[in-house]
């Protein structure tokens, strides 16, 4: 009996979270008037038809909701730090939406297993390789975990840039780049090889960040 009530409560909460998310998505589209720019038009179809790893800059906490709300046709799992995932105010929502917790202070690989499972289900994964907010106009130092995920799953890595400062009723732009051209299966110590890969990715993202309209 108790189990039944608990299950019903969970279903109710999940339904409620989805309704809140749908309303929030509408508000996002109204307030930030998102403009999506595809540098490579073929990526648009790829995002909707095959699982990808999306690596984005991270200038605001809005990024974690804005990007999946804008790319709503592409089922996205968002990697979020454990510090935020465990906050009581958000945990009920993260648990019921597609968010994956990452513990940056331990060697736990739980996040990568969950992200691999999501990609194998045919869903994409959004990750912020800087691992924290970077608000000085640069991309910050990128951590190579997303490239290890690409190595384990062979999923393409697509860079994203969100820019515009999230000002109400001003356009927030999401630039979707072309697939990162880097061989993640290159022989060598991953910590060395993947750092080269993050440099390749960073250069491409810097070009996108400084792109003129």
């Amino acid at each position: 009996m108790r189990k039944g009530i608990k299950k019903a409560a969970e279903l109710l909460l999940r339904g409620f979270v989805r309704v809140v998310w749908a309303i929030w998505t509408l508000l996002t589209w109204t307030a930030y008037r998102p403009r999506i720019v595809y540098e490579d038009e073929t990526v648009k179809k790829r995002l909707e038809s095959e699982p990808c790893i999306l690596a984005s800059n991270h200038t605001s906490h809005h990024d974690g909701s804005f990007i999946p709300q804008v790319l709503f046709k592409c089922p996205l799992n968002v990697v979020v730090t454990k510090k935020w995932y465990d906050k009581k105010a958000f945990n009920w929502m993260f648990r019921n939406l597609k968010y994956i917790s990452i513990d940056l202070d331990s060697m736990s690989s739980e996040w990568i297993e969950k992200a691999e499972a999501a990609l194998r289900r045919g869903e994409s994964v959004l990750i912020f390789p800087a691992g924290k907010l970077v608000t000085d106009g640069t991309l910050g130092e990128l951590h190579p975990g997303f490239l290890m995920l690409a190595k384990f799953t062979d999923a393409p890595v697509i860079p994203l840039i969100s820019r515009g400062g999230y000002r109400i009723f001003r356009r927030q732009e999401l630039i979707v780049g072309s697939e990162i051209a880097f061989d993640v299966h290159m022989k060598g110590r991953p910590s060395v090889v993947m750092r080269e890969g993050t440099e390749v990715c960073k250069k491409q993202m810097e070009k996108m960040l400084n792109r003129q309209n």
């Binding site: 331990s106 060697m107 736990s108 690989s109 739980e110 990568i112 297993e113 190579p144 975990g145 290890m148 384990f152 110590r189 991953p190 910590s191 993947m194």
Partner: peptide, 27 residues
């Protein structure tokens, strides 16, 4: 001189070879 990125490769290799999952294990 390994780092946490190398540990991901190590965990994958150990899982594949011995079938032992080291996910969530401490340092």
């Amino acid at each position: 001189g390994l780092d946490s990125i190398d540990s991901l490769e190590m965990i994958a290799a150990i899982d594949k070879e011995f079938g032992v999952s080291m996910t969530g294990v401490g340092k």
